[in-house]
């Protein structure tokens, strides 16, 4: 009886396992990297420059994007800084950590946090944004920021590249910030806060990795923000000559 049982068991085992083993040997399943999402990482400095203003102010400025991820999800560390060389102080220092997912053929949505830690009071915001390529080749990046106090603001960044040749590129960018509530402590008034407009002529020296440029940048504050700046003894408008390089690794 027990012998019959074991025979049956063996038979069952055999019928279950043997075909599986055979097909396993003959038909591999693809677990190579080709079958996995391709993850890409890199670091790009859209701006890495020295600025000299019309009232002799000197700034070191960067605008960096360090990213890693797949087509479906990327993590980005976006860092912006303005360092006043003489004062040895950060006029602006902003770091964002965002996740980015595609939402249409040409646009991505971003969500994350932004930490502002310049000279003076710090701020933390939640970030919601949309970035991508608009018709006629405008690179746009719009973001909505909300802090714990409920202060909200929005930022629009648009850039256009004009190819003088395939190596000499003139790029124009406009960055505008609008606040929906006042944050007096950091000098933000309600309404249009500020704009930064830049025009840079670059040359692709090493592939698209190192592209030195020269250019001009105009910064302006508006409305209440301008009034706050004046009340604090600052200016409301600056012209800068800039020299730097676009970097991409």
């Amino acid at each position: 009886m027990s012998r019959i049982k074991s025979l049956v068991a063996a038979g069952l085992l055999g019928s279950v396992f043997i075909p599986a083993v055979v097909s396993a040997q003959e038909m591999p399943s693809d677990t190579t990297d080709r079958k996995k999402p391709l993850a890409i990482g890199g670091a790009q400095f859209e701006e890495f420059e020295y600025r000299y203003s019309d009232d002799d102010e000197e700034l070191a400025v960067w605008n960096a994007d360090i990213f890693y991820g797949t087509d479906d999800l990327k993590v980005r560390w976006l860092s912006k800084g303005e360092y006043a060389i003489e004062e040895q102080a950060y006029e602006g220092l902003e770091n964002q950590l965002v996740g980015q997912v595609p939402i249409s053929k040409f646009f991505d949505a971003k969500a994350g946090v932004r930490f502002d830690t310049p000279e003076g009071p710090d701020r933390t915001y939640a970030v919601l944004g949309i970035a991508g390529l608009a018709p006629q080749w405008f690179e746009v990046d719009t973001n909505l920021y909300v802090n714990k106090q409920g202060d909200t603001s929005a930022e629009l960044d648009a850039e256009y590249e004009l190819l003088l040749t395939n190596y000499w590129i003139l790029s124009a960018n406009l960055d505008a910030t609008v606040a929906f509530s006042e944050d007096r402590e950091i000098g933000i008034g309600k309404g249009l806060v500020s704009t930064e407009t830049g025009l840079r002529l670059s040359y692709d020296l090493i592939d698209r990795s190192v592209s030195p440029y020269v250019g001009v940048v105009h910064e302006r504050k508006y409305g209440d923000t301008a009034d706050f700046a004046e009340a604090d003894g600052g200016g409301t408008e600056d012209w800068f000559a800039v020299i730097g390089a676009k970097l991409s690794f």
């Binding site: 097909s23 396993a24 038909m27 399943s29 190579t32």
Partner: peptide, 24 residues
């Protein structure tokens, strides 16, 4: 592409298969 059937082959199976790692 999986060609099913044919002479002297067991049915292709993608589930019960060996794991082949590495970079393709």
């Amino acid at each position: 592409v999986i060609v099913e059937g044919g002479p002297e082959t067991s049915q292709p199976s993608t589930d019960a298969a060996t794991d082949l790692g590495g970079d393709a």
